[in-house]
Each structure stands twice: as C-alpha cells, then as structure tokens.
Amino acid sequence: MCAQKIAEKPRPEVAEEPHPMESILRMERIPHIWCPGCGIGTTVTAFAAALEKLEWDLDNVCIVSGIGCTGRVAGYMRLDSFHTTHGRAIPYATGIKLGNPKLKVIVFSGDGDLIAIGGNHFIHAARRNIDLTVICVNNFIYAMTGGQMAPTTPPKGYATTSPYGSFEMPFNIPHLAESCGAVYVARWTALHIRRLTEAIMEALQKPGFSLVEVITPCANYWGRINKLGVGLDLMKFYHQNSVIKHGEDTRNLGIEFQKPIVVGKFVDRERPTYLEAYNKRLAERLGDKFKPYGGEA
C-alpha cells in the first residue's frame, strides 16, 4: 500500500524524460524487486542493450525464465515473456521454439534454476543443440529464498545450508555446456557491461544452443553471509580478480572461493541445430513425403 502511495505522488526531481529503455522494459512494473547492489539489473541492461543494437523486430523475440531472483527477469521485459516453474525454463522454451521456429527464444535464469533442479534439461538441450540462447546469472547462492547453497557455491563458501562452509565440488558451467554440445560459450561478470553486451549479441546471433554465464554480485546473501562487503566491494573484487582469457580450455574455468575468475569467450563452433538435423534426416528417409518443418506461425 505504502509503496503505491509514494509512486502515485509526483516526483518533480525526476525529469519527465523517458527511461532510455522504455521500449523494452515493462515500465509499469518498475521498481523491480532486486536488492541494492545486485548484479541482475546490470545483466538485464546488457541484454536490453544487445537487443536494441541488433534492431530486431522484438515481436518475434520471446523470453522464458524459471524461478528465483533471475527468474523474475522475464516479467520486466516488454517481450512475450514466461515466468515458468523452477528449473523448467529450458524445456518450456524448447516447446515454444519448436512450436514456432521463427521466434528467437531466450532463457534467462539463475544458476540454481538452470544447473541444479534444471540440470538435466540444460545438458539435453545443449546435446540436441536446440536453438536457444541461455543467459545464466551465477551468484553462487540461492538468493530469493535467503541464501542457501547452490551447485555453484565454491568450496569454503558459506550459505544457510552450508553453515560450516561448502565442501562439495561446484559445477564449472562453461565446461559443462561445452561438454554437452553448446556451440557458443562465454563468461563475463556484471562489471564487464560492454563485453557482456557484445557476448549476448553474439550468442543471440548464433544458431544453436548458446550460453552466456554472468557472474553477478549478491550483496544481501552471498556478500553478507561470507563477509565480503556490499555490492560495490564485490564489483571491486571482479575488477581486481577477473582474468580475460579468450579461447581458454573450459576445463580450467572452475571457480574457487575468492580466487581469480577467468572470463572471456571460450567456445564458438558450428554444429547443426536440432531442427536442421531433424529436417535433414527426415528428408533423407522420407523424400517427397516430408516437408521441412518450419512451424506454423
């Protein structure tokens, strides 16, 4: 109630100028729910900038999210957007893409959503080379629910369900993606806005399963529980400890607690997409009886 009242009042200090990303954000839903110092907003900015630069007809662009802080991204984008169930954004997006292959479908979700509960879908979509761009925001923790351990939490990292520090081996997401068949894999942090925007543009233009991992600060949980300071401190850490190594062997991309983070573009290769392979194989076997599948828009 309170927030609504404040929003209704005219705020003269805010200029009448439109928000620069008004055309692509659902302004009626702003302010968003993310905490101060969070890196998701920055990632969304990079994504919005990428779409703007590509000058695509946004009516044909669709975004799907799962559950979690990053899961809320879909709801803020002025696109056909889906906020689905925990972990299932990728198969949901697969259905949309196969239902209408003319669409550009983006999955925008968190590390826990995509790699833990949704891990099986992630590896299979990469294997099939479904034409999707996956933007995975990795903040090392389940933030929306108050800071529980994730499959990306580095050893010695604290979380409410690893109160003595994690001892599990975390997933190296770029390596997982490459091993499973992704055609484009990059990692940047929320600090590298320009490079992140470029990576998202490249990923969006790449036919097949592309992945951009974005290391983002979670000040309220990851930062607080691990006594790493506020959002700005985490950004400073990225500034001092990010090492750009394009083409680095993805086996070397594991992230250790408060150790340097290797960023860059690691994989950019060609492989037939699911539908290309489907159409090729069925045309071979069925000849004239088969019309290449293009979906009915």
Partner: peptide, 24 residues
C-alpha cells in the same frame, strides 16, 4: 507436426505448455 522425445516427464509437459503458447 513435430515430435520430440524429451529427457523426462517434467520436460515433456513443460514443452507441451510452451508449444501450446506458440499456437500449436
């Protein structure tokens, strides 16, 4: 039409919901 064998039943019904919103 298009057939896809998904990786499990969670994915199956998720893909069906997605495809339905694509208009199929």
């Amino acid at each position: 039409a298009i057939f896809i064998q998904m990786e499990d039943e969670l994915a199956s019904l998720a893909s069906v919901i997605g495809a339905s919103w694509s208009g199929l």
